[in-house]
Design a protein around this nucleic acid. Structure first.
Length: 415
RNA sequence: GGAGAGUUGGCUGAGUGGUCGAAAGCGCCUCCCUGCUAAGGAGGUAACUGGGCAACUGGUUCGAGGGUUCGAAUCCCUCACUCUCCGCCA
């Protein structure tokens, strides 16, 4: 959520910024709501003050057992007026709030301008592309089975067997250990979240169709970002405790509505996948530095796994709803002959903090924190990358050195 | 699933109709004392929000939403959540 004061005072600046990401604010709507709000609010508060005063006089008259009927009449009339004005005001505030909840975050001034992903900027490429293999992961190993998964649950699910499960488990443990080493505290979390949590991180109300609803009140989490960030919802944090770094491995559930026909083969786009999430709760002055730190933490994993990847900076038109600045990490997928997203690291500035009411206390008063998060990493996609990049073209997949202790062997025989 | 108790400021916790945005304690901040630390003393310290250049000055909030009342933390109703005991259970 944006700061409404910013809109009141610098509407044109905000409008210009949001335009860069393709969002249009209706200026006349905003100010017509705002003008009525101001007038009504002043009016209502005046009436409330008056009632307060008269009620206390009423009490005094009562105490000295004097006649109160005239005063009661006055107050009754006042209450009728107050009630109608107040309900107008409430209606208006709801409209205004809905308008605010619909607005995306303001892109950071350093974000390159653009209209869609074609305008994203490649910042750097890392590692050597050595694989000449063009078989995809389903062709390389039979231990990933999406057909049998469709019997169990439908399309966009997978069943893993034997070595592949163990490899996935090794990746998870390796990634979590990296995060811990980098100062993140590990959490085990609920895989379902309530509505308020999802509003806090920005999935609701606008993106309900992307979620799986598990019951009347609970949704399956689309990412551990939701529970990790909401750990701090409605909390005050001591300034000296910032930044707070937390991590968790969870499954993630996404309906992938609107991606029909896209990435239908294999593990790349599933309703359910494993992910390690990194979250930092930071001081506003430090957040960009923390974003770089988090990005490095994520890249480090690919470095250690010796997988080729590149870093992309998203342009204004491709930024996620809540994000102010985002770096994507894309890993090389030999079978597709291109890089695919494996992590998205974002600075949400105070956008989520405002929605989730996460503040820090400092000498100059209370202020909203900035929230940062990114995958560290998406496990399913990492598994694909590992299989496809490390396949020898004949019968085995090489396990990177950093995983050998976790996996217990230096190769997987695929026959 | 059955029975009961609770939800108040950063925390603990008092408060059953106006003098309560709220006792007390803890914590925190400022100052005094002290060679330093500890202890001690004085004062300050809820959040959100409106108007105003500002000084300042209004309003809202005691889990949420309704109701009663001139007036509600306090009375009534509904809901959510937490805890305890019993039952069941990985």
């Amino acid at each position: 959520m944006l700061d409404i004061k910013k809109l009141r005072d610098n509407f044109d600046d905000v409008q210009t910024s949001l335009k860069k990401r393709g969002y249009k604010i209706d200026k006349s709507l905003f100010f017509s709501l705002e003008d009525s709000r101001k007038e009504l609010q002043i009016n209502v508060e005046k009436l409330q003050a008056e009632r307060k005063k008269l009620s206390s006089e009423f009490g005094k008259l009562k105490a000295s057992s004097k006649d109160t009927s005239d005063l009661k009449n006055t107050i009754d009339q006042l209450n009728v007026e107050l009630e109608s004005k107040d309900s107008d005001l409430q209606e208006l505030l709801t409209k205004q709030n809905n308008l605010m909840l619909d607005m995306p975050n303001i892109p950071d001034t350093t974000v390159p301008e653009g209209t869609n992903e074609d305008d994203n900027k490649v910042l750097s490429e890392h590692g050597k592309i050595i694989s000449t293999n063009n078989l995809d992961h389903l062709e390389i190993t039979k231990k990933i089975d999406t057909e049998i998964a469709s019997k169990l649950a439908g399309s966009r699910f997978a069943v893993l067997k034997g070595d592949m499960v163990k490899l996935q488990r090794s990746l998870i443990n390796f990634m979590i250990d990296c995060a811990i080493e980098n100062g993140y505290e590990e959490y085990y979390l609920p895989y379902m979240a309530n509505e308020n949590s999802l509003i806090g991180t920005g999935q609701l109300p606008k993106f309900e169709e992307d979620l799986f609803k598990a019951s009347e009140k609970l949704y399956l989490i689309p990412t551990a970002e939701v529970p990790l960030t909401n750990l701090f919802r409605n909390e005050f944090i001591n300034e000296k405790d910032l930044p707070i770094k937390v991590t968790s491995h969870t499954p993630c559930f996404r309906s992938e509505a609107g991606s029909y026909g896209k990435d239908t083969r294999g593990l790349i786009r599933q309703h359910q996948f494993e992910k390690i999430e990194l979250v930092q709760i930071t001081h506003p002055n430090e957040s960009m530095k923390c974003l770089e730190n988090l990005l490095n933490n994520a890249c480090e994993i690919l470095d250690k796994l010796c997988l080729p990847y590149r870093i992309i900076e998203l342009c204004t038109g491709d930024l996620g709803f809540s994000s102010s600045k985002t770096f994507d990490i894309e890993v090389w997928m030999p079978s597709q002959n291109k890089y695919r997203e494996i992590s998205s690291c974002s600075n949400f500035t105070d956008f989520q903090a405002r929605r989730a009411n996460i503040k820090y206390k400092s000498q100059d008063g209370n202020n909203f924190v900035h929230t940062i998060n990114g995958s560290g990493l998406a496990v399913g996609r990492c598994l694909i990358a590992l299989i496809e990049n490390n396949y020898d073209g004949k019968d085995s997949i090489k396990i990177p050195d950093c995983l050998i202790d976790y996996f217990g062997s230096s190769t997987i025989n695929v026959n």
